[in-house]
Amino acid sequence: MNKAKMKKLLWAIVKYATLVFGSFVSVLPVVVCVITAFKSPEEYAETNVMTLPKSWTYFENFVQAWKQANMALAFRNSIIILICVLFFSILTGSMLAYVLNRFKFPGNGLIRNLFLFASLLPGIAMQVSVYQIMYSLGWINSLFGYIVLMCGTDVISIYIFIQFFENISVSLDEAAIMDGCTYFGVFFRILLPLLKPAIITVMILKGVGVYNEYYMANLYLQNKNSFVTVATSLFKFTGPLGNQYNYICAGVILTMLPALIVFILCQKQIYGGLAQGAVKG
């Protein structure tokens, strides 16, 4: 009996020790960023990076980073992009999934495979030719163009929706059709509301992706005076006129904050959503 107790205690120690260690490693790089962001340039030069700042109310770095990287505009743009992309990609993604799941028609399998294959294509390598297309459409330096592009490059959300539809009984549709509903009506009135969990999943996955996307944003939204996004605002700190680490860290923290706040507020939904994707995926 005693031995079992010992074993249990030992296990508990191992368990919490590893958990603490894992969490420590996960936050350490970011915590150091926070520390550095609160140091004055002189303090930064003189102290070890792990030494806590003298004052936690030294906001100068944040003010500078906010101004230099034009973050007010960046946040505005990112919010617009986020809302539009999420709205349209969820709408079109779920519509496509509905069609693919509910109707048998020639080409159904082909279309599924086309989407699947698309997810294997190397996105970075194709930007050369994508750029030519964006250019000929006149969508360089256009929020609209970027939003359309971001809506189009998504495969995972379609799969999540398809999987979700599989679990919604077809008899529901049939009943509605009997009542004189059109197929459009079935989708918008009956099924879309039922999709809520899947929509949350997609919002999270896609939302994180869109918010943090920098490669294409940098490529297609070049006029940073007007079209900077939160992720590309960080480019301000690179290059020949780069910046001190104090400002960089402050900038990094600023870009992370909204994600952090949303995360803390909607923790449950986020975990639930991801798990949903997992179980179905």
Binding site: G22, S23, S26, Y214, A231, F235, A259
Partner: peptide, 23 residues
């Protein structure tokens, strides 16, 4: 614990670059 370990997922790629050069 879950939250702390999940959080890095939300960090932007460029920020990861900065953070780890520093790290």
């Amino acid at each position: 614990f879950k939250g702390l370990m999940f959080f890095p997922y939300l960090v932007c790629g460029i920020a990861v670059g900065f953070i780890f050069k520093f790290f």
